[in-house]
Structures are given as C-alpha cells and as structure tokens.
Amino acid sequence: MDHNDTSRRHVRITASGGKADVEIDGKRVDPRAVGAYTITQIVGEPAHVLLHVTDHGSDQWSGMARVSVTDVPDPGPAAAVFLDAIDPEALEHAALARPDLGTEPHSLTKAMLTQLGEWARGI
C-alpha cells in the first residue's frame, strides 16, 4: 500500500445499531450503495477505509480509485480450532439452561448451535 498518496479524502461514518451513514468529503453516500465497510489503521499512518459497494446506486461511483483484490479466507480452519476448544459438558449445560430452549424436535441441537454462535461472537 502506498502511504505517500496525497489525494486523501475525508470520510465520516456514523453508525447506530445496524445502520451506518457514510459521507465522503461532506457528500452523503446512498446507503443502498454500501453493503459493508472496514476501517484499518497502522499506528502513525492515516486510516484506510474500504467500502464494499453494491449494485444499488452505482451511478454514484465514478472517477479513479485504488482497487485491492483479495480472497475471502476459508472459515473452516478457524471454526475447527474454535470447536476443538469447546468443552462438551459446558456446552450441554449452557444449552439446557437457555431460556429459549424449546420442546420441539431438534430444539437441543438448535440451542447448542445458538450457544456456540454466541460464544464465537463473545456474547
């Protein structure tokens, strides 16, 4: 990445709940045009904002841009490490203690998957 680029833009992101408003150089970006965004920063360097654009509002995007192409990482190895670290007894106790545990078929499996998802997200 070229950190000496002098064509910097002012980006403002205001997030609340599951929604975010994005402005570039004071101009609001159509919320339908941005599917996601990531912000990274190396200490001592300007922040790097990556907007994941959608097909909506495509007439809004014109001009020059620096494009990075990456592969989406395979979640399998990370999921395997996470699952290997799970204590089966703790999972069973947590799932059985859930207030949303139902009585329908497969409700224990559903509760365990929900519990694993919450643990994976740090909840």
Rank of each mutant, 00 (worst) to 15 (best):
A90S: 14
D74C: 09
A33V: 00
L83H: 09
H10M: 08
T54R: 01
V53M: 01
Q115N: 07
E104P: 01
D25K: 03
H10N: 12
R121L: 15
W61P: 00
L96W: 09
S16P: 04
D84S: 14
V34Q: 02
V67Q: 05
P46S: 05
D5Q: 10
V49C: 02
L108N: 00
A36I: 00
H10A: 12
I42F: 05
S58E: 00
D55N: 10
M112H: 04
T109M: 11
A78F: 05
I24D: 03
A85E: 14
P99H: 12
H106T: 15
R12K: 13
T70R: 10
L83P: 01
Y37I: 00
V11A: 04
T40W: 00
I123E: 15
A47E: 08
P77L: 09
V49R: 05
A94E: 04
D87T: 10
A97S: 15
H93S: 15
G17H: 06
V11C: 02
R9A: 11
A15L: 01
I24R: 00
L50A: 13
R98F: 04
E118C: 11
D74N: 15
G102T: 07
A90Q: 14
V11F: 01
H48Y: 06
K110Y: 09
V69Q: 10
K19R: 13
S16K: 11
T40Y: 04
I86G: 06
D59G: 15
A33G: 03
D87H: 08
V34E: 06
